[in-house]
Design a binder for these strands. Structure first.
Lengths: 230, 230
DNA sequence: TATAATTGTAATAAAGCTGTCACAAATTCA
DNA sequence: TGAATTTGTGACAGCTTTATTACAATTATA
């Protein structure tokens, strides 16, 4: 659904400012106040983007960056480093250790988002796309609309998020637990079988004569979205 | 329709920044990375405005400018030159060769758009029209008037701003919080539910027999304006 | 100043969505 | 084949979200 950015910044004022602006741009956000916190949070939920301050308590930004790169889950996650110092040495060091871009404080939010967009467009374009199309199915994430073969389809919020998640990872099989985490949220407890019911509702909503079911059931594993006819 | 700006800029960061800001101002954009590319693109679709970097690979900005002026289709198209150098000589050269305005890098986006507006107002005022039309609904942002199917509709200030905001972003779903930010202002605190009431008033005011409600409710998400019959 | 228009809130009604269960159907495996 | 496991689906109660109304307070207008 929304791209998730981890903001690693110990200065509270800047962290809040970043949070506010990223949320306005449609990101989900989380703040880490030091390097250790950052590593923990990144492990718990893999971010789609990391904003990483250079100067941090406990672990330096560079060190955090190196460790993030060593982990499989975050090896390719886009990282933008923030630094008060702007000299070339720092820039080079930051980029050497695996940051994708570099901003010198103070910076304009406009420029930050221009760069963010550029970076995400390069690395994971589906995150920025408003309209995701697969086969004859179309999901418009800005307008929150779904179409199949140009027919508008009405979905409830949960079915929408479910479809959104599945269609962004076509072919991949998700267990019920994974779907609960991704669609319902980590801290919400509902029966795993509830997923079945929503999958059923989604299937029913997407059903059209002469078109095959885009959702595949993988017995004793979960569900997956399949590219479809057309 | 939206005005179309051709951004001729080889430096990627700046090009992205410009693109982002022009899009935010409601322009359609295209980027050309060198002079030849610019001439090709301008031929394919005549821009309403051209931002032209002075220093370009292959063909210089001045040369591009001269050639654009020689073509009938772009002879009068407004051109703003961008240059790193700010001395008078360049300025004169640029303007001599037919640029309409001239900005020295680095420049503020605010100033750029102030000049852009001034230029477009002078050359092609219709592009900056204050009247937004969508389907059978017409919003005159200067005169603060609204019509539907040629019937004048009276709205209170808040409903007007609400409609104005929604109609400028047709299809897009806004949460109540986003609407409060955009319509009421960031620092004003009112209940999120108040939005519902104003949406209701707006709907009532826009209601006409045999015409459907242009405002879509998206459950657990917000509201969106939809293109309508006619 | 009196009158009208506009605004935000709260209360209530209406609509829509969700999660669970029970049982049917399908699939697997011995 | 038959038992066990897994999945599909309809029903439904409870819950959440939205629409609408009324009203008091504020602001504009004559």
């Amino acid at each position: 659904m929304k791209p998730y950015v981890l903001l690693v910044e110990d200065e509270e004022a800047l962290a809040t400012l970043l949070e506010y602006n990223f949320q306005k741009e449609g990101f989900e956000t989380s703040i880490a106040i030091d390097g250790e916190d950052a590593l923990l949070q990144a492990e718990e939920r893999t971010p789609d983007l990391i904003m990483l301050d250079w100067m941090l308590p406990k672990l330096s930004g560079v060190e955090v960056c190196r460790r993030l790169r060593r982990r499989k889950s975050t090896a390719k996650t886009p990282i933008i480093m923030l630094s008060a110092r702007g000299d070339e040495t720092d820039r080079v060091t930051g980029l050497d250790y695996g940051a994708d871009d570099y901003m010198v404080k103070p910076f304009s939010m406009t420029e930050l988002f221009a760069r963010t967009r550029a970076l995400l467009r390069r690395v994971s374009p589906t995150l920025l796309q408003d309209i995701i199309k697969l086969g004859d199915i179309e999901v418009d994430t800005k307008a929150l609309r779904v179409k199949r073969a140009d027919n508008a389809i009405h979905l409830g919020p949960t079915e929408f998020r479910l479809l959104d998640h599945l269609i962004r990872n076509p072919g991949r099989v998700f267990s019920r637990e994974q779907l609960l985490d991704a669609v319902w949220g980590r801290d919400i407890y509902v029966e795993a079988r509830t997923v079945d019911v929503h999958i059923g509702r989604l299937r029913k909503a997407l059903k059209m004569p002469d078109r095959k079911d885009p959702i595949r059931t993988v017995r004793s594993a979960g569900y997956a979205f399949e590219a479809v006819n057309d």
